[in-house]
Design a protein around this nucleic acid. Structure first.
Lengths: 106, 106
DNA sequence: CGTCAATTTCGAGGAACGTCGTACTATGGA
DNA sequence: TCCATAGTACGACGTTCCTCGAAATTGACG
């Protein structure tokens, strides 16, 4: 019983990202706020550095959805996990989608 | 009197369209199929002209969601209702979003 | 080693969603 | 007028989703 923990940082390959998955991931106010903060930051952001009106466990849930959809990627460093936008992949697959979302005033 | 007891085709104004509402509307396989068919058609399409794997009542439900989100508009003519994409409004509000979605191979 | 801080996992409650069948309205034609 | 056609309204059912708290994990530091 040596804890066969599955890797919590399973990202989809670029080819595995689907537009429907991305849209579902973005179609939530909390996750949209996360994406906006990651985009405006331009760099990696730790979970604690995100300003969202939910508890930490809920935040973990949302970050998992964004990661599984291919919207973000996570890098572990010590006890903190750094998240970043997969801008290159998204722009390549769905050119204009992310820009359009981020350009929205409402 | 103009409209007796019907609130048939209530569309949001352009200013009332939100990116979250649009994303929620697009984040469903049936509605995405509808949007793709409307886009490829380039013109108005009646409900019966849409090829989706759901019953008519479900189709009505999806068209209502797309309309309320501001993604499509509907025009009544006799007993048939013609639906079309609000491409201009969407491109103005969220430039690139729709193109990115439609460009998706998956 | 013991403790703290950052984050995840688990389980559960409640709300929202997609789907359908049936009944209904409204229009157009025989 | 009667009937077929196009689409909608309503109610119900099962599933998915968001949320939380409590417990567990992991690594850093004294």
């Amino acid at each position: 019983m040596t804890t066969p923990h599955l890797s919590p940082l399973a990202h989809p390959e670029r080819d595995e990202i689907t537009v429907e998955g991305v849209l579902r991931a973005l179609a939530d106010p909390v996750r949209l706020a996360i994406v906006r903060q990651l985009a405006s930051a331009g760099t990696e952001v730790s979970c604690g550095g995100l300003d969202v009106p939910v508890t930490k466990s809920t935040l973990t849930h949302h970050l998992g959805i964004l990661r599984q959809a291919g919207v973000t990627s996570g890098r572990q460093e010590g006890t903190t996990r750094f998240n970043s936008l997969r801008r290159n992949d998204l722009d390549e697959l769905f050119p204009g989608l992310l820009d359009g979302v981020l350009a929205a005033r409402r």
